[in-house]
């Protein structure tokens, strides 16, 4: 259940930003979560809703932008979309690849009022 840790990290960063900008509340937050970031979205939403009451994000709208995952084949250098950490290259069939996108776990923006 590391999703709870992730949620608590978001709340902490948001709280610090609220203070830094001397705002009263956070109206909206936008996150970027990669397809292969290791986040189970159901667990994430469960943790989010559990941690929300009384927090700085209580009345805020949450937007999550999913990031597709992409790998580069070490053999033929083809870049291709992947849905797991072990998808074979569609060009040459090799499993030797680097993940180049899809592990993102980022707060993109906040709206503070």
């Amino acid at each position: 259940m590391h999703e709870l840790t992730i949620v608590l990290n978001i709340f902490e960063i948001a709280g610090n930003q609220l203070k830094e900008h001397q705002g009263n509340k956070i109206d909206a937050i936008e996150l970027e979560i990669g397809l292969l970031a290791g986040i189970e979205m159901e667990a994430f939403h469960f943790a989010w809703n559990a941690a929300l009451p009384g927090s700085v994000l209580e009345d805020c709208s949450l937007k999550i932008n999913p990031v597709e995952a992409e790998a580069r084949c070490r053999h033929c250098h083809l870049e291709y979309d992947v849905s797991s950490l072990y998808d074979a290259c569609p060009g040459c069939g090799s499993f030797r690849s680097e993940l180049i996108r899809g592990k993102d776990l980022r707060i993109q923006s906040l709206v503070i009022s």
């Binding site: 960063i13 980022r106 707060i107 923006s109 906040l110 709206v111 503070i112 009022s113």
Partner: peptide
């Protein structure tokens, strides 16, 4: 007047760790 500030943070959630 009421106003809102948009903070384009682009911060990794695990940056502290």
């Amino acid at each position: 007047q009421p106003h809102q500030t948009i903070v384009d943070l682009e911060m990794d959630i695990l940056h502290k760790n």
